[in-house]
Design a protein around this nucleic acid. Structure first.
Lengths: 195, 195
DNA sequence: TTGTGAGTATACCGACCGGTGTGTTTACCT
DNA sequence: AGGTAAACACACCGGTCGGTATACTCACAA
């Protein structure tokens, strides 16, 4: 575990993380062995364990990285607008784009939460934190609109957001994000917001 | 695979299925080995393979059984009401009760979908079918209310339903079902339904 | 009474799992 | 020229995976 948070990854470590992220996401964390990761990254297992220390840590790095990428994307989309209503609607547009681009296997955090049943696994915390952060984002945005009961509105939007991912991925609702966006508008109006 | 759909399970097979269902749900399908299932059921592996043929089939039996239990529960709650609006709201009450009682690890179908990455695994179909059935239920109930655009309303309610499960389980929204129920009422009114 | 189905016990299979140890090569920095 | 970090190759560890084989006991029913 020579790898700390600040100093950058070595080239091989970066390759390992990229490959592992792809494999863990598309085939599942428990299904993918370290030997396969090493092979696909053109690296020996030794190198992986020298850089990451354990599979658990590699999994955490994968989840953190993916969380960060999504969060950066979402934040940039939200901050592109001033009006709080537009900011809320932008989250659903961002979700739709993201799902079209790189979510063909559903939410990585929800999947990891399902796979990592051991309550001690630090990967669970990463997933929980991501969801809590999303909830708080919606609660803050709801408050900015001056809605009546912004807490309930924020929670509702967060649930709609999560439901759109499952709806798109498992249920097969093709336009899930757009439908959720429309619903968000209706919910805003129901909470006394001009939308 | 002597076990077909109609003839009842032998006592040992019933025990195996019960134990496997509990273990698969709480610890995850890939995490639980057949040896553990055998041990916990007080049965030898031989017996399991004589009755179920393979782990894959045991997993499918688990998913089907759980799906059936949930579906029976939900259906009974819906059919207890005449008014379509009451029927819709009843689904969220049912969900809340179910989650309090036996959903401390989230939706078994969504979890299985995350774990079973092999697209050929028949367990995936069970999960997909359950989600599609839920979507169709909401679409039919929405149509019964005479709502404008019952398709979109139904899809929205289905997503809200799924989001409540994730919200409750991962995000930690304690009253997720109640919040979703309130949101469903608002969405109904937004679609021109008296609710 | 003689099968037959259900279940038991135990040993085994090849494959793979996460992880470690030893020693070597490469490349850059001073 | 010497030092150091990174990556290499390769062999190995104990343990578990899903699944199979053999042989035995028991209850019940024709």
């Amino acid at each position: 575990m020579r790898t700390t948070e600040r100093n950058p990854l070595t080239p091989a470590a970066r390759r390992v993380l990229a490959v592992a992220s792809e494999l863990f996401y598309t085939r599942g964390i428990n299904t993918v062995g370290m030997e396969l990761v090493a092979e696909e990254a053109g690296v020996t297992k030794k190198t992986i364990y020298d850089r990451f220390g354990s599979k658990q840590r590699l999994v955490v790095a994968y989840l953190r990285g993916r969380d960060e990428r999504w969060n950066d994307f979402l934040t940039s989309r939200v901050e592109a607008h001033e009006d709080p209503v537009a900011r809320i609607l932008a989250t659903f547009d961002a979700l739709g784009e993201w799902m079209d681009r790189e979510n063909e296997r559903g939410c990585a955090m929800v999947n990891a939460y399902a796979e990592l049943s051991d309550p001690e696994h630090p990967g669970r915390t990463v997933a929980e934190e991501q969801k809590v952060r999303l909830r708080e984002l919606y609660r803050e945005l709801a408050a900015e609109t001056g809605a009546t009961d912004p807490g309930a509105l924020g929670d509702t939007l967060a649930m709609l957001h999560e439901g759109a991912v499952v709806g798109r991925n498992v249920t097969g609702i093709a336009d899930a994000a757009a439908t959720a966006r429309n619903a968000a508008g209706a919910l805003l109006r129901a909470h006394g917001v001009d939308a």
